[in-house]
Design a protein around this nucleic acid. Structure first.
Lengths: 224, 224
DNA sequence: CCCCACCATTTGGTATACCAAAATTGATTG
DNA sequence: CAATCAATTTTGGTATACCAAATGGTGGGG
């Protein structure tokens, strides 16, 4: 992750910390302390915080420390619906506009996931999962769409990660992915739409108990 | 437009200048010069530029002056497709989730537009047009969706403004809006989808000649 | 006459210093 | 003992100064 400027590097680092749960939802992200902790000045730290704020991972309130976002289930569910819509549109476009290379890449990522399902660790698996869905968005050859899709995917990454650690969901996700790939390979618009709606529709149900648990637990130790 | 901090105010000002065409596509937006021109320091100006960059109105390149975005027709068309998808989703949700107040507001805005079609000036009309489409997004009661929809609406504002100055399109737009409102009032999902797709589908055709003209002309006087 | 190299200037990136508003805490008074 | 007000401290907002990289122009050499 070698970015042009400090701010994007810091943003990437913070993003990782948030998504991995090292910075818990609701935690303060003070620009002074964090900057000092990383040995940089406030300016790039400030910019990094703004970047994550536009991504929805940090929330800004006037005259208050920025805090790690702590979305309710309802908010996540809303975001998931938007993500689903964007991904369905992507896949539909991909059916007519994707190159053979695009499709090959999607299939390859799907295969990688299959390999990792049993053996690999959750983080590796999720990196590939993210790449898989991103590849579908990219195959639409609509940059705005791919960009927006990616933004929503990032916002939902942590919730999906928490939900998917439940081993129970993995085999189902694997079957879902296979169906998506199969439909894309033959450029079947209706089938790919159905497969994606099934896959992403389930996600809300998977996420709900995890999020409600976490928020319930977090409500107590809220000193930070 | 009395915002909490300077950066947001500057962003609003720059945004208006860009959308109204006082800052032309392709023009440099140097953070030093512009800050000095407004009598502020570089810090908030820099932040304002970043804000507009995430909105897609300004493009950033490493070690280069930020420039006012100069999208090709293809890019605008891509954005329009995303906007259409988001607005259709909004309207579908609105059919089941909108309150009577939401619907009343939408109808009221539509009526205001009707009044302005003949008499009012283009800018007033477009303010209302923007509010109309935003009201539909808000009626979905899905904040992420409304926010994203608004972002795309902003990006496309200028192109739509240029296209709609052609008086020819106005009566058609008026009929389109009436159809959208009528479908929403009776919460008819299929009808509202059809009406919106018609309305926003046409837009691409209206925009094309205007954009291609402007880009052709701009290619010459590109010293700035 | 053209091309290349080098220097000056411009530009964005970063650090630091200062300011104003807001939250918190502690003292004082009812 | 509690409530309130004020002072201090903390925090984000803004201005300014400095740095390094990139660009563009100019002069010398081929």
């Amino acid at each position: 992750m070698v970015d042009a400027n400090l701010a994007t590097e810091i943003a990437a680092r913070l993003r990782r910390d948030i998504l991995r749960g090292e910075l818990l939802p609701g935690a303060k992200v003070k620009e002074r302390d964090n900057a000092e902790g990383l040995g940089v000045s406030r300016t790039p730290m400030r910019e990094a915080i703004r970047i994550l704020a536009t991504e929805g991972l940090i929330v800004l309130a006037p005259s208050r420390s920025p805090r790690v976002a702590d979305p309710t289930f309802q908010e996540l569910s809303d975001q998931l619906l938007v993500l689903r819509t964007l991904e369905v549109l992507s896949a539909e476009l991909a059916c007519s506009r994707a190159t053979e290379d695009d499709l090959a890449r999607i299939r390859d990522l799907s295969d990688q996931m299959t390999d990792l399902y049993e053996t690999g660790d959750s983080l590796d698996l999720f990196e590939v999962d993210m790449a898989f869905h991103t590849a579908i968005a990219d195959a639409s050859h609509n940059d705005s769409l791919a960009e927006t899709h990616h933004a929503f995917l990032s916002r939902l990454w942590r919730a999906r990660y928490l939900a998917a650690r439940q081993w129970r969901n993995r085999s189902r996700a694997r079957a879902d992915h296979d169906a998506i790939v199969a439909a894309l390979m033959v450029r079947d618009v209706a089938a790919v739409r159905a497969a994606l709606e099934t896959h992403l529709g389930r996600l809300a149900d998977d996420i709900r108990p995890i999020i409600e648990d976490e928020r319930g637990a977090a409500a107590k130790g809220m000193r930070n």
